[in-house]
Design a protein around this nucleic acid. Sequence first.
DNA 1: GTGAAAGCGCTAACAG
DNA 2: CTGTTAGCGCTTTCAC
Lengths: 349, 349
Amino acid sequence: MAIGWSMSSKKITITDVAEHAGVSVTTVSLVLSGKGRISEKTAVRVNKAIEALGYIRNQQAAMLRGGGSNVIGLIVSDISEPFYAEVAAGIGEILDGQGKVLFLTQCGRNGRNLDRCFDSLSAYGVDGVIIGSGRFLNDVVKQKARDVRLPLVCAARASEFDDIDVIRPDNSLAAKVATEHLIKHGHRQIAYLGGEGGSLTRAERLGGFCAALLQYGLPFRPEWMVECDCRQQASAQAAQELLTHNPEITAILCHKASVALGAYFGVLGTGYTVGKDNNESYFTRQVALIGFGDVPEAELTNPPLTFISSSAREIGHSAANRLLQRIEMPDEPPQHIILPPKLIARGSV
Amino acid sequence: MAIGWSMSSKKITITDVAEHAGVSVTTVSLVLSGKGRISEKTAVRVNKAIEALGYIRNQQAAMLRGGGSNVIGLIVSDISEPFYAEVAAGIGEILDGQGKVLFLTQCGRNGRNLDRCFDSLSAYGVDGVIIGSGRFLNDVVKQKARDVRLPLVCAARASEFDDIDVIRPDNSLAAKVATEHLIKHGHRQIAYLGGEGGSLTRAERLGGFCAALLQYGLPFRPEWMVECDCRQQASAQAAQELLTHNPEITAILCHKASVALGAYFGVLGTGYTVGKDNNESYFTRQVALIGFGDVPEAELTNPPLTFISSSAREIGHSAANRLLQRIEMPDEPPQHIILPPKLIARGSV
DNA sequence: GTGAAAGCGCTAACAG
DNA sequence: CTGTTAGCGCTTTCAC
């Protein structure tokens, strides 16, 4: 009748461990943190007691008196946006190796809760915070961070601030590299497909795109830079239209993975083929494609599309590392870390 | 020379507030938690002091003495997997409305860190934990949860346990509903495309699929249930092969969004069309498509593919709500919450 | 090397 | 309605 049942409900504290090991709480604490010089023998005894009792140190209490909490806060608008999910994963990877953990908050797609998120993180005693969607970051929060001396770094998709640490991809360079790649493969008539007018990311990329065109003395055609809904079908249609109305176009730079995928099928739909024909047998018209992508291993691998990537995961890595540094040295001037793009050639050029 | 500079670095405590407001700490505490009945006047005075000083309550200290921490722990293998990201977002939405927050941990794609994640959450005093990837959940962790009396619920993609709360989609029913939908639209030769052999989710769906076939007296064809790489191109090829080798097939159930998308283009690639022709002019062969999808608003909307969804976000909602309930009433027997599927008809059938 | 004691900021009795 | 007081579990001087 399950009488000898484990009544273990009582919370086990450092005191219990000390008792069990026949030492003082101080000693246990010292062993836990590896600080004071403890004799090998007692250390072993203490550890054995910890094991036996299944003791788990109460971090809340620990940080109350001591210094850091080993918790990092993250604010994103919505974690289900792949970019932020990827950044979060990257941050997690770094933190993991450092015995630190991640506090996740979502401020909503409109950023409404940003202030509340920040206060929340602050209240829970995080050692620093990383903010994803920098576009919502306002001066109130920045000031608050300064007031409570809470390190704040921004993991962004585009350039945003100059008064805090920012980690971001080099959109402009990425576009330039991609465009040059196309030019070097003989393309002279290049279009840019996708994105919305108001997007900073798009603006930066178009900047790089134009820069490359100008540098190589190629014509600059506003009507070849077309916005479109990012969904595949829409992109496919847009690509098809673009190609039929402008038969001279031989290459398209695609604003994101789904656009590239759409364009891929759009090109096929026009009866053209994608990529360069290695055998130099130019019987059917070919269109080259390069897509921008945050998430290397994803959709673009199959069909094999050449793409230019600024890994969101790496942004997460850098942001985490930067924050950790800043926690150590809070008074350094803020810096921008701009991640270079990587071009992955895979046959569609 | 910035001499009168804000020296606000000192941490502001409840005591400071009490002093500033000319009341005792108790009163402040009471105002903060809205517990004791405090006179309107003092409440206002206290709030004013809080405002003036920019006081932020130290949650760590609060929970040390009091009960809950208002923190919920989440363990997923990798937050960048869209399913988990979506679940996390759903959880966040619920918690947000309750003044609670989310602690995110990642146990790695192989689940290696599961134990460590759990201990971490436990150490930080979460009120309960939601585990995503249940497939990694082991008895050690379950026992540990019981020992420390930490409510544990599992937000899963498929059925996994019976000794803890589980929230999961009804894969079998979803497949059944989808299949019946096809049958009712006159289809008799239906294939299932995608997924990997070892997948529990797939097994459950195939179960529902077969059940529906049998129920309607339709033939059961193992060779029409084909596995395939989930990437688009692979799926497109697989669909094309399937259709050319088996000309009698008129409908395909697709294991996930990317497979459906691939199949869509695969069908077009064979020269057939997708969907039902409303004008009853059956000149070209048509193939109907239904995809499974976790994320309603995503890829399947365009092209307009009919799909059957078990919203990952809703799983997050339910999991959060269930956990909150269980925190209130820890001794209820564990229950399974099985979310019904939703069929969204959009023209591809 | 190890222990005793004083808090960290807050809440929860119990008095007034 | 409001104040006094005693801890929550842990770290950290400062003695021994």
